[in-house]
């Protein structure tokens, strides 16, 4: 199993996968745990608790929830069970408005409690704005779009918008080599000719 949306023709799996991603995007602690394990490969509960500075009981119950959601695999053949992450990619289409959620958005959300600018963005404008900002952070991180164009199109106060882009730039650079579906994230520069300088 490597991707929850690639098995065409299985509506049950598609809807369950949708619910799993929605859960990851609801609780930043789960999102952070998910992207940590995706980055690390195979980890034990002790390693998770240690590296994320979580109580062992929390690490255990969170990991168990992610196994139930189908986004973690648990290897029970070893004496100490290990966990690994299943790469998720989910395309949502609402009346023609489309967005593909990949682990990069999950990581951005998971980071939000420890980044005041991402936290404030979500509190004031919602998760959708974080997803939209990510589509600008992708070209911004590789030098293809200026801060001024991006913050104007995102309709954010300039200095705040720049802070958000700088926060997301770190996420983009960190996730690019880890997220197998990175190329599927929308790139604001490629779709909006008005956005080019």
């Amino acid at each position: 199993m490597n991707c929850m949306s690639k098995t065409a023709g299985d509506p049950e799996r598609a809807v369950n996968g949708f619910m799993s991603v929605a859960r990851l995007l609801e609780e930043p602690r789960l999102a952070r745990l998910y992207s940590h394990v995706l980055r690390e490969g195979e980890v034990t509960i002790d390693e998770i608790a240690d590296e994320l500075d979580l109580p062992r009981t929390t690490a255990y119950s969170d990991a168990a929830e992610l196994v139930d959601l189908g986004v973690f695999d648990r290897d029970e053949t070893k004496k100490t069970h290990t966990y690994s992450a299943v790469s998720v990619v989910l395309s949502a289409n609402l009346d023609g408005d489309e967005y593909t959620v990949t682990p990069t958005l999950i990581q951005a959300f998971g980071r939000s409690p420890r980044d005041q600018d991402l936290d404030l963005l979500i509190e004031k404008h919602g998760l959708g704005k974080l997803a939209a900002a990510l589509t600008y952070a992708v070209p911004y991180a590789n030098g293809g779009m200026s801060e001024r164009v991006a913050t104007r199109e995102l309709d954010l106060q300039h200095a705040f918008g720049v802070a958000v882009l700088q926060a997301l730039r770190e996420v983009v650079l960190e996730m690019k080599p880890i997220d197998p579906y990175f190329e599927e994230i929308r790139n604001a520069r490629e779709e909006s000719p008005a956005g080019s300088e």
């Binding site: 005041q116 106060q157 705040f160 802070a163």
Partner: peptide, 14 residues
């Protein structure tokens, strides 16, 4: 003005 106009609870606002 751009630095001063940032929301109070954002990093640039602080």
């Amino acid at each position: 003005e751009e630095l001063g106009g940032a929301p109070d609870r954002s990093a640039p606002g602080q």
